[in-house]
């Protein structure tokens, strides 16, 4: 069983209909993928609906996250509530490069707290760019200890050691393996924070899910750890999600 914790479906910009990721999932032997757009709602009109339609069309294969611009305040909150309660989404995606909101800025903290009410994980783009560095996102993780904060790409090319250090420091931080080009970083992450806090992810379809699966296998994990990375860890996170928002 493999669940890909970070993939993209979108109708604007990088055009990737759901069938593109499904084809690559089949090639790689991936059972389910978490999908999100490349752009933020509500800045990109209809983006949440596009994800909702894809999930509705392929309910056994696709799981939706809402990518939102926290700077849109109440409007973003209403959209997240709608995504969770009407569309059955399972998480929140934040990409500070796109919306210029600091990961620990007041507007971001407010929407993370809203995600907490649903027990929903918050997946941050976490790379080498300003506003996305692991030590910047750590400030949000420390301010919201109840939140599950996922560092997508676990710090990218130059900041993966920071990402592991942040995960050691903050128990609510989880690492996703997508796109970074170092199999040994996955092994080090598992050794230092445990496989239950590391998620297989591809950042497909641009990044090839088959290659990303191969990367995890090259980390030479124990069968138990590999199973956790490939699906058990994200299943545990998603099991805590409630779509009624009454978790607290």
């Amino acid at each position: 069983m493999i669940i890909d914790s970070h993939t993209h479906v979108d109708k604007v910009g990088w055009y990737d209909p759901p069938e593109t990721i499904l084809r690559l999932m089949d090639e790689a032997g991936i059972d389910k993928s978490i999908i999100m757009t490349y752009g933020d709602a509500p800045d990109v009109e209809g983006s949440l609906e596009y994800i909702a339609e894809a999930v509705q069309k392929y309910p056994d294969r696709l799981i939706g996250y809402a990518r939102l611009n926290p700077g849109r305040g109440e409007e973003a909150h209403r959209l997240f509530e709608k995504a969770m309660e009407e569309y059955g989404f399972k998480g929140l995606k934040l990409h500070p490069v796109g919306n210029l909101c600091h990961p620990a800025g007041a507007e971001t903290i407010e929407i993370i707290e809203l995600a907490c009410r649903y027990g929903a994980p918050v997946l941050f783009h976490c790379g080498d760019e300003e506003l996305t560095l692991p030590l910047q996102i750590a400030q949000a993780a420390e301010e919201c200890p109840e939140a599950t904060i996922i560092l997508g790409h676990m710090g990218g090319y130059f900041h993966w050691k920071d990402a592991i250090r942040v995960a050691e420091r903050c128990e609510n931080v989880v690492l996703d393996t997508s796109a970074l080009p170092y199999p040994q970083a996955i092994r080090e992450a598992v050794d230092r924070v445990g496989s239950r806090r590391v998620l297989y992810a591809s950042d497909g379809p641009g990044c090839d899910p088959s290659l990303e699966v191969h990367k995890v296998k090259m980390a030479h994990l124990t069968p138990e750890d590999e199973e956790a990375v490939f699906h058990l860890s994200i299943e545990t996170i998603l099991d805590k999600v409630t779509n009624s928002g009454d978790r607290s």
Partner: peptide
């Protein structure tokens, strides 16, 4: 700097 075996897979699996 990068893993030679992994980098070979990047080409081997290319479409």
């Amino acid at each position: 700097v990068y893993d030679q075996e992994f980098e070979m897979a990047r080409v081997r699996l290319a479409h």
